[in-house]
Design a protein around this nucleic acid. Structure first.
Length: 485
RNA sequence: GCCCCUGUAGCUCAGAGGAUCAGAGCAAUGGAUUUCUAAUCCAUCGGUCGGGGGUUCGAAUCCCUCCAGGGGUGCCA
């Protein structure tokens, strides 16, 4: 049930006969700006003044006379230049609230027309540790998934893994030269992560991108290993197949901690066999053309083209994303695809969506973009020595921080002479996790999605203010009061 | 150069694409509370909504322009 829609419908009926097209005026009924003025307000009288050639207050009076009053709505009031203030009847409202409280869904109606959503989020490059850059996509994407499902839509979640990129050259090189066989037997996932970092440490320049500098001999060997894999070299393909389950385990460890799951994880490798057809179809339809040895799609004078095949014959992520749209529309019957990806890829998605439309896909495509996680210096969040913040380490720190918050609260109580039996270790562990992960998730979700935010442990785990920690504490205290009562 | 995003209180941010005083939390300041099993409470201070112009009965909100910060910008993804 939606009260605002119901009231708008009443207003629309009241306006029928007064104005030729009541719909746009009916939707000008909104929640009141200030509770002193009522619960809802209709603002259409002012904008109708010119159209009807009358005083706004006179129009408001006319509308009020035509509005039915019953046990739902009290007598409307006219205020100021012509606002119509509406107040819901208390008895009716109380009854509604009782109904909502007793309802499993708290009175939230399912959508009248469910749609098929595909939500593409998280999407890490596998074979290397997930890092802070994956945090927001994972949390926001998961929240959207839960919301759309709750509203009654069909949602397919798909983790579009980077499982075919240059990081495999790094792993292959590491595996062939630096592997610790015993460690591999004991914990292949951990060894894989170690090998990736080991080889990265041999690079001349350290940053978080997988860009290869061919003048660095180590990087050039890695590049060749990737090229061999892509060319179908049997040894590298076999190793890749052996690595994949370990790669999946590496990221699943993180998802288990965050309570996030996916229906599918069709990565880049899955679409690889389809890419040649995508390019030739785009060429046949005249959407893509040759330029400087590459195959590109143009987007107008002022914008760079999208490459769908590079000069060396390799395909790009645009090509993969096009194949992915095709697959999602045909296999999942996707009506809407949401991409929960960093705002820096805005241009890529704008171009991708243009090409998809030209290609004839009328699926609704939306880039759900978000800002960067910043450190205290307001620059992208890095470790103290300038390295990448790994997600696993960040979650460890969240748990450790929650423990400190708990213990200092307990110490404070003890100092006041209040003391209680310590919880069992297992319960404490769970407590720290719930508080720690909750704080990280809520700190992300409570802010404007599109802007950057500063990652601040103390602020997100404060026991007052707008934090998950405060809400969890308040909730726990409330439960305790009810228990004693 | 071109394109995109952001700019609201000291800080972090709300403000559902217009109207009836620009809000919250934190911080700060003043007061209350001296505590028998873990939540302090009340009040106050604080803003030419980045600057300027425009449209409108009405602009933080829409349009133009300038300034500041960030990002992107054909062979990484």
């Amino acid at each position: 049930m939606n009260i605002q829609l119901q009231l708008q419908e009443r207003l629309r009926q009241a306006l029928t006969g007064l104005v030729p097209d009541p719909a746009p005026y009916a939707v000008m009924l909104k929640q009141a700006q200030d509770p002193r003025f009522g619960d809802y307000q209709a603002n259409c009288a002012m904008s109708l003044a010119k159209l009807l050639g009358k005083q706004p207050r006179a129009i408001a009076q006319q509308i009020v006379e035509r509005l039915p009053t019953d046990d739902v709505l009290g007598t409307p009031e006219i205020a100021g230049p012509g606002f119509i203030n509406l107040r819901l009847c208390n008895d009716w409202l109380a009854k509604q609230i009782q109904t909502m409280a007793a309802d499993e869904r708290l009175g939230v109606a399912r959508v009248a027309q469910p749609r098929n959503y595909v939500i593409d989020f998280s999407s890490p490059n596998v074979a290397k540790p997930m890092h802070v850059g994956h945090l927001r996509s994972t949390i926001i994407g998961d929240a959207l998934t839960r919301l759309f499902k709750f509203l009654g839509h069909t949602v397919v979640t798909d983790n579009h893994l980077g499982d075919w990129g240059t990081q495999f050259g790094i792993i292959l090189f590491g595996y062939k030269n630096y592997r610790d066989e015993a460690a591999l037997q004991a914990d292949p996932t951990r060894e894989l992560a170690r090998l990736y970092l080991k080889v990265r440490s041999l690079f001349k320049k350290v940053d978080d991108e997988d860009e290869i500098d061919p003048s660095d001999p180590v990087q050039d060997v890695c590049r060749l290993e990737t090229a061999k894999l892509h060319a179908g070299d049997p040894e590298n393909v076999a190793l890749w197949q052996m690595f994949m389950p370990w790669c999946h385990e590496l990221i699943d460890q993180i998802y288990r901690r965050l309570d996030v799951s996916f229906d599918h994880r069709y990565g880049e490798s899955f679409y690889n066999p389809m890419l040649a057809d995508v390019v030739s179809e785009l060429q046949q339809r005249g959407i893509a053309t040759d330029s400087k040895g590459a195959v590109v799609v143009w987007h107008g004078e002022n914008e760079p083209p999208s490459l769908v095949r590079k000069r060396d014959g390799a395909f790009t992520y645009t090509t993969t994303d096009l194949a992915t749209i095709c697959y999602r529309v045909t296999q999942f019957k996707a009506e809407v695809i949401l991409y929960v990806v960093d705002f820096r890829q805005a241009l890529h998605f704008k171009h991708l969506f243009e090409i998809a439309r030209q290609w004839g896909y009328n699926v609704e495509l939306e880039h759900v973009q978000f800002g960067t996680v910043l450190g205290p210096d307001r620059k992208p969040f890095k470790t103290r020595d300038g390295g990448i913040v790994e997600l696993g380490a960040l979650l460890d720190e969240a748990v450790a921080h929650a423990e400190r918050v708990y213990k200092s609260g307990r110490q404070g109580a003890a100092d006041r002479g209040q003391d209680a039996a310590e919880l069992p270790a297992e319960e404490l562990k769970r407590l720290y996790e719930v508080v720690g992960y909750g704080a990280v998730k809520y700190a992300d979700l409570c802010q404007n999605r599109t802007t950057d935010y500063v990652f601040d442990w103390d602020k997100m785990m404060a026991t007052d203010g707008n934090t998950a920690t405060y809400m969890q504490y308040a909730y726990a205290r409330n439960r305790s009061i009810f228990q004693k009562g």
